[in-house]
Amino acid sequence: MTAAVTAAPPAPSRLADDDLDLLLLIRHFELALLDMFGRGELHGTTHTCLGQEYVPVALRPLLADGDHVFSNHRGHGHYLARFGDPHGLLAEVMGRQGAVCRGVGGSQHILRDRYLSTGVQGESVPVAAGVALHLRRAEPGHLALVHLGDGTWGEGAVYEGLNMAALWRLPLLLVVEHNGIAQSTPTSAQLAGDLAGRARAFGVAHTLVTSTDTNTVRAALAPVLRRVRERGTPAVVELRTHRVGPHSKGDDTRRPEEIGYARAQDWYARYARAYPEQFAAHDERQRRHVAEVVREVAGRPASRWEEAGRG
């Protein structure tokens, strides 16, 4: 049931320009948010995906418009990879006009077409199983994908949903971004056994991917998604990744060497070293693009929640 994909080669592979642009868009979007929080220009909270940007970028061409994607609290990259819409997302985070959800949902609660995020861990797994139940009957070949973290596997909802998906043969894909830490608690202190064993207990295929190279990850994921579509059975993919930033903002209590280790694994610096010319041009372009998005959205009037939209 468990298929391991070997670690990325020492040097990352060269990325297509559009993949690199998307990775960098997400990176600079997240950096801009932390920067704005630091200056007191954002209200509330946020969870950035620094270091984990390649997960939705690797998945992007493997997903069809008819697939449902369920995201979580750390979902900016998932949204940007699906829609390429930094204006709508930033307006949502800032509560400005043009916000995807009028500023009601904010960073963690977004619904657009077949993309939904919520702020409660694990809640989306049975919901996605319900969507997959409908897809199996009405739209075979499509799937429901849930992004979750290693910490989410403490929630019973994950197992209830996975159990039904396995019993009923539902096209449900759980994509686990295993970054080794749940807020401040290391995985070793919150997860007994391992995810491979947990998936095996349900008779569900599990694939481990340790690479952070977008091309390699995509190649490893492609057959998994194909199997979920063709067989209509659930699968778990576990991506060993690295949270380069804090859980939220300024709340990183890891030891310096732990943060240093995560940074050493970061695709961003490694790619910059491997392909300096390609990287520099795209990095600068996306940095400026995001700066312009921030400037433009910050100048918009406040979002409005119409009475008719209040449920």
């Binding site: 049975p126 919901v127 409908h134 019973g156 949903g161």
Partner: peptide, 25 residues
């Protein structure tokens, strides 16, 4: 096909129902 006995998973069942509703069912 539409009347299903489920595992003992009240939270999960209501979640599945929520997913069906989300999908327009």
């Amino acid at each position: 096909e539409r009347v299903l006995s489920t595992p003992l998973s009240e939270g999960g069942i209501v979640g599945v129902a929520g997913g069906l509703a989300l999908a327009g069912q």
